[in-house]
Nucleic acid binder design. Structure first.
Lengths: 339, 339
DNA sequence: TAAAATGGCTAAAACCTTTTAGCTAATTAA
DNA sequence: TTAATTAGCTAAAAGGTTTTAGCCATTTTA
């Protein structure tokens, strides 16, 4: 194993100083009045020897890493993994690397992760935050480390975010069901205080109230396993046989809900109608196809990376936070149309 | 923004040397004969001030990072994202961090990623390698950096791996279909030379030959988009109406294949039977439920992390590579049983 | 012609650790 | 009583950058 090249080697081979090489490699040749002759020589040798600066050393000196951290609730959720893929792709070109991790919605784990990343000079954070980490995020902001939130906000925290219009999303979903003639519409959601969940619930409540319908809200525990969700939803629907349509507030609640509906031998949409959140491949493919509230994954990713890169590159201390709210799209399919 | 604490601050506050503090923090107090008195004082102060060593500086000095890289084909594929989740969880406890990335099966991208990680002193690699990066992996091995491959091998490369028995997997799948009375069994796969794909094909061929059946192998281009796969599969099935069963060699080929079968208005299993690779939630839930070859995701993850940690901790230069081959399980469901 | 500005480069500090080699004082062995 | 060992600690180098402050020679300005 040969020793790795260092900037010193380059300097020595050309009989010039380390400083000069560093200036040239950092594009400061002109600014620092290094002659073209020397500049060319250096660049040529660097190319020839395929010298790459040691990023660790660089990071130690500069406090930067050219790495952005993407913290999502669960990397194995299709919504989040699509976002991850898209963001990675975009950042790569810009010279930034992305590292992802799953918070599992646990504040302690999230806190640990942030701590660890701070020790490693991560430049910026894109986060779908769990509840209870307001202080940790605030502390990042206090240290002028760019943060962009997505999927949900932290109330009372002034920072960049990219959201969807959750309220509007469920409003459309419920209205659609009402248009189709359903009158006893259930809303299956999580026992969570997260903003996106509240907004989705509010949207449901609003329309139900407007139309003087009965409200059927069932909340399941976020942390419970697959089967418990299935049986909880199955029981709820069983106990309220009048329910003729269901709106699910997340993609996995929808798949679990469909499982539940199958379990109790109801047919979609003949016996009960269904609308899901997020447009998974599954929903396009399932028979009947499932009506879904589709989030603009590509746009979300693009906005996220745009914002974080802008903040990273601009050293303007106090530019206003970027606040983006994107619309969702209701994709009507068979699961919500009885005829 | 207060300046971050450094080891120097600790040393100064206690009027002792940096060296002493470092020894204590690295658990070498006994070995280096530091008195209990001093040791306790240091630990107390470190605790009190919540001092964390700067990992960048540490990494610069030691050449280690306590980070393992997990390179998968596509992080948004459920198989890979489950593996990612499990590995992350396991590593966390052991003091290692995981960073993931997607290779998209592109050798150039993979090469770039490896290069970048090497610049950052990543300690070890868990990789589902694309074709054409043998040299890059070999170069890691030459530098004594632990690598564990999974999902597929690189022929002629001697290193650790965790595989499943792909040959056996398709053998079981095809045999099951034959048992069910199907005689014109198609195999839909990729135009790929990757070992796992070859093995799956070999398994199919073997059984087909043994039973003197006609072979129907259709290969689609890996890089093509969703819709092109769907139409390619649909055409193939349409052109071979005699086909009464299909075995898909990956999870996404199966979902796309189901889409294709729907498109051409065939019914599963009445018109055509189906067996998928990987046991996605989708396959359990779809109506009819889809027979699937299930990979032991949990075991794979566990083995992967065990092996890499063992290699990282043991400085025994040349211990034999760990070679693990796990069995798959055929989960029979409705999609492959006509009656 | 002297003073100021510019061009072209560099020495050394700083970033924060780990680790080697070694020092002094106290204890033990001979 | 002297030599060797041990206990308890530390100075300084090393790891590879970036960046500040500044040097010397040449050119421009006054």
């Amino acid at each position: 194993m040969k020793k790795r090249l260092s900037i010193k080697d380059i300097a020595q081979q050309l009989n010039i100083s380390i400083t000069t090489v560093s200036f040239i490699l950092n594009g400061k040749a002109k600014e620092k009045r290094i002659s073209n002759l020397v500049t060319d020589r250096v660049l040529r040798l660097v190319e020839e020897l395929d010298y790459k600066p040691n990023q660790i050393a660089r990071s130690l000196r500069t406090g930067k890493s050219k790495i952005i951290c993407l913290m999502v609730e669960d990397i194995s959720n299709a919504f989040f993994s699509s976002i991850a893929r898209q963001i990675e792709e975009n950042a790569f070109d810009q010279g930034y690397k992305i590292i992802y991790c799953s918070t599992e919605n646990k504040p302690e784990k999230t806190r640990e992760l942030i701590k660890m990343f701070r020790e490693r000079n991560i430049d910026g954070y894109i986060i779908s935050p769990p509840e209870g980490i307001k202080e940790d995020i605030q502390s990042l902001l206090d240290d002028k480390i760019p943060v962009v939130l997505f999927d949900r906000l932290i109330p009372g925290l002034l920072t960049n975010y990219v959201m969807i219009d959750n309220f509007d999303a469920t409003v459309n979903g419920v209205k659609h069901l009402i248009d189709q003639g359903y009158l006893n519409i259930a809303f299956i959601t999580l026992d969570s205080q997260q903003t996106q969940m509240k907004d989705r619930l509010d949207g449901y409540n609003q329309v139900i109230k407007e139309h003087n319908l009965n409200s059927y809200v069932h909340k399941v525990n976020y942390a419970s396993p697959y089967n418990q969700h299935v049986s909880s939803i199955a029981s709820y629907i069983n106990e309220h046989p009048i329910i003729d349509a269901v709106l699910f507030s997340t993609n996995y609640l929808a798949t679990r809900g469909i499982d539940a509906i199958n379990t109790i031998n109801l047919k979609i949409p003949a016996d009960i109608s269904a609308v899901a959140f997020d447009d998974l491949d599954f929903f396009k493919l399932y028979q009947p196809t499932i009506t879904a509230i589709s989030q603009p994954v590509e746009e979300i990713s693009k906005k996220l990376i745009d914002i974080i890169l802008k903040k990273l590159e601009s050293n303007l201390e106090e530019n206003d936070p970027s606040e983006v709210i994107l619309p969702t799209q209701l994709i009507v399919r068979n699961s919500s149309c009885r005829n």
